[in-house]
Design a protein around this nucleic acid. Sequence first.
DNA 1: AGTTGGAGTTTGGTACCCCAAACATTTTGA
DNA 2: TCAAAATGTTTGGGGTACCAAACTCCAACT
Lengths: 174, 174
Amino acid sequence: MTKKKDELSESLEDYLEVILQLEKTNKVARVKDIAVKMQVLRGTVTGALKSLAEKELINYEPYSYITLTPRGAAIARDITKRHGVLKNFLFKVLQIENERADAIACRMEHAMDKAAVERLVRFVEFIDQCPKTQQAWIDSFLEYCRTHEIDHDKCTTCIDRCLSRHQADHVKQA
Amino acid sequence: MTKKKDELSESLEDYLEVILQLEKTNKVARVKDIAVKMQVLRGTVTGALKSLAEKELINYEPYSYITLTPRGAAIARDITKRHGVLKNFLFKVLQIENERADAIACRMEHAMDKAAVERLVRFVEFIDQCPKTQQAWIDSFLEYCRTHEIDHDKCTTCIDRCLSRHQADHVKQA
DNA sequence: AGTTGGAGTTTGGTACCCCAAACATTTTGA
DNA sequence: TCAAAATGTTTGGGGTACCAAACTCCAACT
């Protein structure tokens, strides 16, 4: 039926993301604001809006406000989620500087399919919940980035600490 | 001087990557083979080659073989490295199925800057070397993906095993 | 109400990347 | 050696995405 031409270009995905963001902060999205966020001229925005309207992802009448349709909003939320997940991984785990993490996430978010995003969510969750990793392990990673080596003499105490922490946490909950 | 217009499009980056790959396996790159790998018609390849030749990234004479210039080869190797790192992470760590990991890596590789790639390399290295993670931890992650929860009762023994393994490895090397 | 300036749109142009199909060259193998 | 076959190139056309600048609309202010 619909073949597979439901596919949006990366650019249009970005527009949806920005529109959602503007709806949240400003109630409605205006061409000028979209243009600023997308770093593009207003004329370019008009073109993109027509395209999105054709696909029934936004409600658009010339000279009027722009709102997302339910389908558009769903896609926008999905993309925003990807963005958040990726940025979180880049920033919190890989410890890439905030702005840059955001910029990279913005480009990477279009490359992953649903399953991959889901996997990454689980992965970050797992780091956060497995007693062997958590923040202590991420801190060790930062150390490793500086020194480029692991001091195996320290590992025993590190693992011991990990065990104590786990037992403490475990007792707290019991 | 050169401002920042050294920037290659994602598409041209892909062409360089493919040409490098073909140079390795076939000694030289031919238009038809590039077309197959890029999933594009031969005519499209010719256009891309002209573009790359203009930027002095390949040696190109009509109807003749194609080779990378030193600059082109350097870029191609860089992109190939990104691709490998990403695929490795997606496949080995996130355990995304081989083909799909490759396809996603192929799209993500253009989004990361040098520092981010470096970080990811270190990250995978670190997982592989830190006694608290390594393959055992990755296996636990897979388990977590299935169950969506951590069985904290098992953590103590898991950490104990980790300690033993580390001590065994450490002794081996001493 | 009339004017004016900001917001939105249109138009014409560029660049990229692709396809289809006609065309040119090289390779091949009979 | 000399035509097919395979390979490579050109041409014309389509889609997207952008800019610059002319233009239209609307709303605010006097």
